[in-house]
């Protein structure tokens, strides 16, 4: 590299790194009147529709209640960028926020950073992906969890699917990232529903939450095990991939597919009869519940710390038509 350009490329690199923190502040922090609490919402990847919907829900809630609190929304670049999320927690502590509402990218790795935040008097609320309960108990930390029961949601959609199958039918599961808590919970929910209904799980593989990957895995699975009557995908993106796979192996007509998350494209697919059902975790409400819990704890530091279970609903063609 030409020496002359070394500083320039350093500058490019530096601005690139700065650009990685996607931060937006809905209300100017400096003009904060005393007494109006600042709440930081730390999300996983805002490139994921689920989390962007969640963040939008919280932003709308703040706009409607702008006299009550300020909101700072932060996200990380990709779901596995754990160290960036830890850095965000530290930044928010330095920023003197009153509460942190976090969807942790990892159920364990974030705990030390959150412990330091809690020790410095910041209210911490855990949403979406549940922090490891054993580790929290060991650290003697009481962090309320506000979120859906992923396992119950997966079980519900699994039971709905089982109603359309007959006993002993073969099914396949498309798992999410095997390291993620909610991925494991959904898989467990699927398995429980299938076991109770007497279905046979012929194949279960991870497609890492991705559409293209799911297409490849599902088309292999369907070719190797033609007896598969249904596919349970741990998120809607993978369900979309399974729909494409069904088409490429000529099983569009008879293969049943269910997903999870209720993204807009999944609703379209349900209306078109390509997807049987999905699960709505009410992403838009999830962060709002978290913020409300945080506000309650800021208002009364001695309030009892309780977990809040947010609703999970089955989305089918009937429920979409009823809307």
């Amino acid at each position: 590299m030409n020496q002359r350009y070394a500083p320039l490329s350093l500058f490019v690199l530096a601005s690139f790194i700065v650009g990685c923190s996607q931060s937006k502040q809905t209300d100017s922090a400096s003009s904060s009147p005393a007494g109006k609490p600042k709440i930081a919402l730390i999300m996983k990847s805002l490139a994921n529709e689920f989390f962007s919907t969640m963040a939008d829900g919280a932003t709308k809630h703040q706009q409607a209640n702008s006299d009550q609190y300020e909101l700072i929304v932060n996200g990380i670049k990709d779901e596995r960028d754990i160290s960036r999320q830890v850095a965000l927690v530290q930044e928010m502590v330095a920023n003197d926020v009153d509460a942190i509402v976090i969807a942790p990218a990892d159920s364990q790795a974030l705990i030390p950073a959150l412990r330091r935040a809690a020790k410095s008097g910041i209210v911490v609320v855990n949403i979406d992906n549940r922090l490891d309960a054993d580790m929290l108990a060991k650290e003697d930390l009481r962090i309320p969890f506000v979120g859906p029961d992923n396992k119950a949601g997966a079980k519900a959609v699994g039971e709905f699917l089982a109603g359309k199958l007959s006993k002993g039918d073969g099914v396949a599961i498309l798992e999410g990232l095997q390291t993620s808590e909610n991925g494991q919970a959904r898989k467990a929910g699927f398995e429980e529903a299938m076991a109770e209904a007497g279905m046979k799980i012929v194949d279960s593989q991870s497609a890492q939450w991705e559409m293209t990957k799911a297409n490849e895995v599902a088309s292999s699975s369907l070719s190797e095990h033609p007896e598969i009557k249904a596919i349970l995908a741990a998120n809607d993106n993978m369900a979309m991939g399974a729909i494409a796979a069904a088409k490429s192996v000529g099983r569009s007509e008879d293969l049943l597919i269910v997903g999870f998350d209720n993204i807009a494209a999944a609703q379209d697919a349900i209306r078109d009869g390509k997807l049987l059902a999905t699960v709505d975790q009410h992403a838009d409400q999830l962060a709002v519940f978290g913020v409300e819990t945080a506000l309650k704890l800021i208002g009364d530091r001695n309030a009892t710390v309780e977990n809040v279970e947010t609703p999970v609903d089955l989305v089918t063609v009937q429920s979409l038509l009823a809307q």
């Binding site: 490139a47 994921n48 559409m211 293209t212 993106n237 979309m240 490429s248 494209a265």
Partner: peptide, 8 residues
């Protein structure tokens, strides 16, 4: 293939 545009 997916009849959809995927941001990921």
């Amino acid at each position: 293939l997916m009849e959809a545009a995927d941001p990921g």
